[in-house]
Design a protein around this nucleic acid. Structure first.
Lengths: 162, 162
DNA sequence: ATCTATTATTTAGCGTACTAAACATTAGTG
DNA sequence: CACTAATGTTTAGTACGCTAAATAATAGAT
């Protein structure tokens, strides 16, 4: 089948190159984990009619609305230019409304519709189904969340300074 | 740790809803960390003329080549349909070659060109610059990588069973 | 040898995700 | 009360990333 990795020296000298190995990259582990995560969410979100980023946006809006595009952008760490088409699709689906703030017409206020709010009830099944699907140890999850939180803070520092 | 609950009641009852909070989602932490990571890589990879996924592909090919599209796909956890256009761009840039395997013409073999191999020398600066940029504790990084590895294994199990 | 099933790659269509630049509104200054 | 600067949103253009379906070649069984 794959022939596995027994003959790894097909290309790499290996004495100096350890740090260019894919497996050494934490970023690759994050990239992989994140991709797998959205892949697992897909079938769980499909009955809600949401993609994974759309689900995140609805989570943010269920917690706090109305919100401006900028607020949602800040919360999710996505550029406004990324959110605008996503929000338009949610509006198209009848889950949110977008309207100019009358007191400051630069802003666009985003708010779930009744239908959008009702969806929240169905969404409650998602975290349950998920933790059931991946059968995860709560303590390990908490530890992972803590480490990721610290790491994210560090990354944010690096992006803002650069 | 609810943290900033000051005005949280704009929308959420909060008694039952803890598990729908954005901050409770490990997937969101992964999503955020992964996004920040590629954002930090961007300026480091720009002088190499690579995007972040292209960098991952080159790492895989520097370790082992020639590889088929499927092998790279398997290694990176990306669908062949995602890789084909990415590889075409790398070919366009003169960094790799794509040719049919003459012994099995179903396969396409991918291999770095001389220029692609030469790029590896310049790439050595990237992990250094990165760890410098985010100034991270090695022990903490190793712990994060270990936890992520376990988590990824669990996720892979979940996707294959579904 | 031909038919079928399998494997491998590509195409088509949708939905993020980014940067840079355009556009619109507001706020501050003379 | 124009003028400029700042703020907020959208558009344009490029590059992932997925699923489903189309295409192509091989391997196995009659």
């Amino acid at each position: 089948m794959t022939g596995t990795v027994a003959d790894e020296a097909r290309q790499v000298p290996a004495e100096e190159a350890g740090f260019l190995r894919l497996d050494q990259h934490v970023c690759f582990a994050l990239y992989t984990a994140s991709g797998l995560m959205t892949r697992i969410y897909r079938p769980l979100l499909e009955p809600l009619g949401l993609t994974y980023p759309q689900y995140l946006a609805m989570l943010a809006l269920w917690e706090r609305s109305p919100s401006t595009v900028s607020e949602v952008s800040e919360r999710l760490g996505l550029e406004p230019a990324t959110l605008t088409p996503l929000l338009k699709r949610l509006e198209q689906a009848g889950l949110i409304t977008r309207r100019r703030d009358e007191t400051d017409e630069r802003r666009v206020l985003i708010e779930p519709t009744d239908e959008g709010r009702a969806l929240r009830e169905k969404a409650k099944a998602v975290p349950r189904d998920l933790s059931c699907a991946i059968g995860t140890d709560q303590a390990e999850l908490a530890e992972l969340r803590r480490l990721l939180g610290d790491f994210i803070d560090r990354l944010k520092g690096a992006t803002s300074r650069e």
